[in-house]
Amino acid sequence: MIYPIVAYGDPILRKPTQFIEKDQLDLKKLSEDMFETMHGANGVGLAAPQIGMNIRVFVVDATPFSEKDDDDDDEPDLSLVDFKKTFINPEILEEDGKEWAFEEGCLSIPGIRGDVYRPERVKIRYRDTDWNEYTEEYTGMAARIIQHEYDHLLGKLFVDYLPTLKKQLIKGKLADITKGNVDSDYRMRFPGRR
């Protein structure tokens, strides 16, 4: 099932999410639906608030970052080849290393991108869809994707990290997204509309 993506301005994107219990939901079905929704929107990550659910779940599939672009001189990031996971009840335990910039975007904020600085390493504890618990460390792009999606679970968005001037420049575009005045290649749910 493909969910509509919740657009910027919806209050659910600003609410801290709730931990879930083992048998509270069909986690395998939710995970499948979230991957289907994310792939349908050409994303590499999707958090539950982005489909209107106030729970601590996100999915990632960084395969697009592992493929070499014909127009790009950079080598593909082979560490991202099999980086497809569901994170349930995740908790970031550590973030460290040199902060580096990368131009981020978000499915809930189509058409807007901006450089965000994040630490290069993250240590995270989470459960999978079989309720197995893991504690793992990630670096580089994998760490960034996790940090971006984890922020959604805290009610934070990448635009919160942008410099004040950039925020002023995109203010009108953000207002347009809230009103539904935006083009996207996927179905969206806008605040005030059902």
Results as ranks from 00 to 15, higher is better:
T139V: 03
S79Y: 07
A142P: 03
T164K: 11
E95V: 15
F87R: 02
E103D: 15
R121E: 12
G180K: 00
D71G: 09
L165C: 08
A175C: 01
I146H: 06
F19W: 12
E99K: 15
E137I: 05
D73C: 05
W131G: 00
L107Y: 00
E95W: 04
F158V: 09
F35Q: 08
Q24H: 07
I109D: 02
A41C: 13
L27C: 08
Y117A: 08
V60E: 05
Y8F: 14
K166G: 05
S108H: 12
S108K: 06
F87W: 06
K167V: 14
T135A: 00
P90E: 03
F102T: 07
D130G: 02
T17H: 06
P49Y: 11
R118E: 14
N54A: 10
D73Y: 10
D69V: 08
A48I: 03
H39Q: 10
W100T: 02
N42K: 14
P119T: 10
I170W: 05
F158I: 12
K85E: 14
E21K: 14
L25H: 15
G52N: 07
N54C: 12
H152Q: 11
S108V: 11
A41V: 06
E91V: 13
E149C: 00
L93F: 01
P110S: 07
I145K: 02
K84H: 11
V81A: 08
R121S: 14
W100V: 01
F35H: 08
Q50R: 05
R189T: 13
G180P: 12
E67V: 15
D74H: 07
A175T: 03
R118S: 10
M141D: 12
K167I: 06
A101S: 14
F19V: 11
L153A: 10
P90T: 06
F158A: 14
P76L: 09
D23P: 10
D151L: 04
N89S: 13
W131Y: 04
K28M: 06
D130A: 01
P11R: 08
G155H: 10
L93A: 01
E137S: 11
D185W: 00
D73P: 11
P90C: 05
L169A: 10
R56N: 04
I2D: 05
G192D: 05
A7M: 08
D96V: 05
Y134K: 00
Y134M: 00
I12D: 13
D69K: 12
V116S: 08
I88D: 02
T164P: 00
L174E: 04
D70N: 11
K167M: 08
P90H: 01
R189Q: 15
M34N: 04
F102Y: 13
D71H: 04
K68S: 13
Q168L: 13
D128P: 02
L174I: 05
Y138H: 15
T17M: 01
E21I: 00
L30G: 01
P191S: 03
Y150F: 11
